[in-house]
């Protein structure tokens, strides 16, 4: 049936549809590829039709891009950095938002291949959210190294200098330096935790949304599932935005010099 929604609870793992040279291709990956193709076509159309006097479509795209730009600049507290980060934050929002919404179209998840659902929300696959989150955190580490230098970046986590200078000034300040040193080591764990918090937040929201939709469809045939789908649509866009906003916030923290933080 075209207008149906799978009421079976989706497995937490994405299902492998087929393999290409030993590379498993899951249903989430397939929808991710389709989303990439559609967005590429749309981007090429935008590029071709971009004019100084905009059409209605271009105006809508411009409003969205200016919105991202405003949000990014606001989080990063700099228009220049906002402009630099716009493509990344914009891509996160557009790609994740579009992929999330795509799977909510009636019928999309009802296609099957060899008894397996062909399409699954790409962000409902931990591989997608984790890999992108990991990439983003690595990028923020690199940005931090560019800003404060390699040793300056390491100094954010290994605050040995503070211990020595603290003890020279007195025992009290020395112990404060020691605590600061230990907290710096915890920051390494915090950086790693960012990868998991970013990826699990999005994955958890999308997966829970799908599970809830299945449960509600099993319990109520009418009205409630539709309301839930509408709510899921909102969550899908909101979570994409949260992911983008957090990326901007992490980047902002990474490129802030320690003395600026103290100020």
């Amino acid at each position: 049936m075209w207008f149906q929604y799978s009421s079976d609870p989706a497995p937490v793992k994405p299902e492998t549809l087929f393999e290409i040279f030993g590379m498993p291709i899951s249903n989430a990956m397939l929808l991710g590829i389709i989303a990439t193709i559609i967005l590429t076509v749309l981007a090429v159309v935008v590029r071709k039709k971009a004019k100084l006097v905009p059409s209605k479509f271009q105006t809508a795209v411009e409003v969205a891009i200016e919105g991202f730009y405003g949000l990014t600049s606001q989080i990063l507290n700099s228009k220049e950095t906002g402009k630099k980060m716009l493509p990344l934050i914009g891509t996160i929002f557009v790609f994740f938002g579009f992929s999330n919404v795509m799977a909510l179209f009636p019928g999309v998840t009802s296609f099957t291949y060899d008894g397996v659902t062909m399409f699954r929300t790409p962000t409902n696959d931990f591989n997608m959210t984790f890999s992108v989150a990991l990439g983003i955190i690595l990028l923020t580490q690199y940005a931090s190294m560019q800003t404060v230098g390699f040793f300056g970046h390491l100094g954010k986590f290994f605050k040995i200098k503070g211990v020595f200078t603290g003890f020279r000034q007195g025992i009290g300040k020395g112990f404060l330096g020691l605590i600061d040193f230990i907290l710096g080591l915890f920051d390494i764990i915090a950086e790693l935790a960012k990868v998991f918090s970013l990826s699990l937040r999005l994955f958890g929201n999308m997966y829970a949304g799908e599970i809830m939709a299945g449960v509600l469809l099993g319990a109520f045939a009418l009205v409630v599932p539709s309301v839930w789908l509408g709510f899921n649509l909102f969550v899908a866009v909101l979570q994409a935005m949260v992911f983008g906003a957090l990326t901007a916030a992490y980047y902002s923290l990474a490129v802030t010099k320690p003395e600026e933080v103290e100020e």
């Binding site: 590379m23 967005l39 100084l52 891009i65 890999s131 992108v132």
Partner: peptide
């Protein structure tokens, strides 16, 4: 799968930067 998804994301990032965000920001 993670690597594949990351590459997929990087591709769409490059495409959107090259064909959407860059030109539109330029026009704006």
């Amino acid at each position: 799968m993670g690597l594949f998804n990351l590459i997929n994301f990087l591709i769409i990032y490059w495409v959107l930067k090259r064909y959407a965000f860059g030109p539109i920001m330029k026009v704006i």
